[in-house]
Design a protein around this nucleic acid. Structure first.
Length: 665
DNA sequence: GCTGTCTGTCTTTTT
DNA sequence: GACAGACAGC
């Protein structure tokens, strides 16, 4: 056979259609134009990190790189699609074809493709943290727990121990000794449970979030031909938010890029806020050791915030025990003084926010240019009540997800067993809804189905009591109905919701609200192409709790943004309110004894502050109302030391009092 | 023997 | 408001 060697086409066009040098500063341009090899972009907050990545994607595509050969790894699905949308706007639709998403998404894609290489069926099940905890509980119930006086860790703690051990690549024993010393007596039992949990997942073809990373790493590390195939596909690998990756993800980055060796990681060590998930911002320092000849490019000029906001941010960061050589600066004008607002109580805080927001709206600001940030998901409950009263539309990111709520999980469980009849956890949910069926009966029905019984006709099982036979028949009918509707997700979902209505009524006092949720879920479910897809998407990319309302109720106004600080990462708004800035909340009470954790809380405040472009308000209530009674609180220790010249104190005065004062004058 | 309900405890951040 | 353990009722 004759061989003809094709030479590489000249992929660099003489001229670009985009005027990069006019649109970017010097450092950004260097990053965008960086050719081949390894680069680390160290980018302070607001220095145009996302912009740089967006332009780099456009530049690569414009240079002739096949978009499907670019891998863009981001922290959330939202971030990836937003970046690709912007790149498409700058260049053209080709950018949408870039391979992008979270590490978890991309790993799941690889594992589906190479499932048979690791002895899994193509359709394995991905479980979210809640299902994982239920699974832990299931194996826990099969093991004798030594009855000592001391408490045994509950399912969420157990799952956290297992997950930490994976993400920090430590043994279960070490995790317990270092982070859960109160449970050292149970070490052996916990280790046994870890093994059982792993075995359960293997047997039932189930993977939790951590498995997605580990199994992909193992696959690519141990099976060279797969690694070569996968890595050959990645001409360029781009990783965003590198400061929040863990050792496992660093390893994956290395494996993904191991053929072409073109990697660019972007991050800011001062914004590392995910160590609880095993992320290690020292990953950034180690990057040059991992990738040879790394070019380091620093982005330092801030384009987002006014100087006065940056002054606050710089002062926040100085309080970290760990020294950051960072001093953000901007050429923007000084701007308004950031405000420190002391409210008498939580309700006043909410009133202040609502009224300020309405004022801003009157001044012509869109609601989605305003964000209200907080440390914990529940810190916004009081505000949410007031926003609802005042009819201010909002969307909340962070906190409990819509698809994690019990009623949604119940409904989904019926569809999950349809896709995977071996899904024990979902069978338990489905069966235990029925009156008279508890863990024991559910277990019996399940093992009958596993040994030849038809799981979709549970009424045919032997020894079923009359108490629930009719209900089992109804369940059987539901399944045959669902099978008839195969192919239409909304219709299947509607059928389950109809069936579920009576259980919902019985189980929950607030069933009208929950049923309304489910109806809107049906409405948006048309976007899922199949049940399998829906189940996987819902686990990997759960719908935000309030997103579902805003999507369907066609409000002509874009909604206000409420978000946990963690979920606000990478985003920016004209005005930012940081509420509940109290000691014990930010920093969290859990962090107070540990220097490293306190530092992370400092960085968290830093992230919150640097989200603001023009206006920043930090608010806190003087009185904290809890179920155990009201008590006076201290503002966050991090803001107490910031001088008045940087953070201007605001006083909230009641209208009636003000009038009174004016009369006296 | 199993299920359902009552009571006390603890409540971070997310893929 | 969720969870685990205790206990009463079928």
């Amino acid at each position: 056979m004759k061989k003809f060697v094709l030479s590489q086409e000249d992929i660099t066009p003489a001229e670009y259609s985009i005027q990069y040098e006019d649109l970017l500063n010097e450092a950004q341009l260097e990053a965008v134009m960086f050719d081949e090899g390894s680069a680390l972009i160290v980018a302070g907050a607001g220095t145009g990190k996302t912009r740089t990545l967006v332009y780099r994607v456009a530049r690569l595509v414009e240079s002739g790189v096949d978009p499907t050969q670019i891998l863009l790894l981001t922290f959330t699905r939202r971030a990836a699609s937003e970046m690709l949308r912007r790149a498409s706007q700058i260049l053209d639709e080709r950018c949408q074809r870039v391979e992008g998403g979270t590490f978890h998404h991309y790993c799941s894609k690889i594992l589906h493709r190479y499932a048979e290489k690791i002895g899994y069926p193509e359709q394995f099940t991905i479980i979210d943290a809640g299902d994982a905890m239920d699974t832990v509980n299931l194996v826990r119930s099969q093991v004798d727990i030594p009855t000592q006086k001391k408490r045994f860790p509950k399912k969420s703690t157990l799952y956290n121990i297992f997950s930490t051990s994976v993400n920090k690549q430590m043994t279960v024993r070490d995790v317990i000794e270092q982070q859960y010393p109160q449970f050292v007596n149970y070490t052996e039992t916990i280790e046994l449970l870890a093994d059982k949990y792993a075995a359960y997942k293997e047997q039932n073809f189930v993977m939790d979030f951590d498995d997605l990373l580990v199994k992909t790493r193992d696959l690519l590390r141990d099976q060279q031909e797969v690694r070569k195939k996968v890595a050959a596909q990645h001409k360029h690998v781009l990783v965003d938010e590198y400061q929040d990756t863990n050792a496992l993800q660093a390893e994956l980055t290395q494996l993904f890029s191991s053929i072409h060796n073109n990697v660019m990681a972007v991050g800011d060590d001062a914004q590392s806020i995910y160590s609880f998930r095993g992320a290690d911002h020292k990953n950034m320092m180690r990057y040059p050791e991992l990738f040879e000849d790394t070019k380091i490019i620093k982005l330092e000029e801030n384009y987002r915030s006014t100087q006065r906001i940056l002054d606050v941010a710089n002062r926040v960061l100085k309080q970290a025990g760990e020294k950051f050589e960072k001093e953000l600066y901007t050429v923007k004008e000084k701007g308004d003084m950031p405000g420190l607002v002391k409210a008498a109580n939580m309700n006043d805080q909410s009133r202040f926010l609502t009224q300020m927001i309405l004022n801003l709206r009157e001044q012509g600001h869109e609601l989605n240019e305003i964000a209200c940030l907080f440390r914990n998901g529940r810190d916004s409950f009081d505000l949410e009540v007031m926003l609802n009263k005042k009819n201010i539309p909002y969307i909340k990111y962070g906190g409990q997800k819509f698809t994690e709520a019990a009623h949604v999980k119940d409904v989904l469980a019926h569809l999950r067993v349809l896709v995977n009849p071996k899904d024990t956890i979902s069978w338990n949910r489905v069966l235990m809804l029925i009156d008279g069926i508890g863990p024991k009966t559910a277990e019996e029905l399940f093992s009958w189905a596993q040994t030849g019984g038809n799981p979709y006709r549970p009424d045919q099982a032997p020894n079923t009591s009359d108490r629930y036979l009719t209900q089992l028949k109804a369940l059987g009918n539901l399944f045959s109905e669902l099978k008839k509707l195969d192919g239409s997700v909304p219709e299947q979902l509607q059928t389950v919701v109809d069936y579920y209505a009576k259980f919902c009524k019985k189980r929950f006092d607030d069933h009208p609200k929950r049923m309304k949720d489910l109806e809107t879920f049906v409405d948006i479910s048309g976007t899922y192409r199949s049940l399998e897809k829906m189940i996987e998407e819902v686990a990997l990319d759960p719908i935000e709790a309030t997103a579902i309302d805003t999507e369907t109720t066609e409000k002509d106004e874009p909604p206000l943004i409420l978000s946990t600080i963690h979920s606000a990462k990478g985003l920016e708004w004209h005005t930012v309110f940081l509420i509940q800035c109290l000691d014990g909340i930010l920093p969290s009470g859990y962090a107070i004894d540990d220097e490293e954790q306190i530092d992370e809380e400092v960085r968290l405040l830093y992230v919150a502050v640097t989200r603001a472009k023009e206006q920043l308000f930090i608010t806190y209530p003087a009185l904290f109302q809890s179920r155990y009674g009201d008590y006076f609180t201290n503002p966050s220790r991090f803001i107490e030391d910031i001088e008045k010249d940087y953070l201007e104190p605001w006083l909230l005065v009641e209208e009636s009092e003000e009038e009174q004062k004016q009369l006296e004058e």
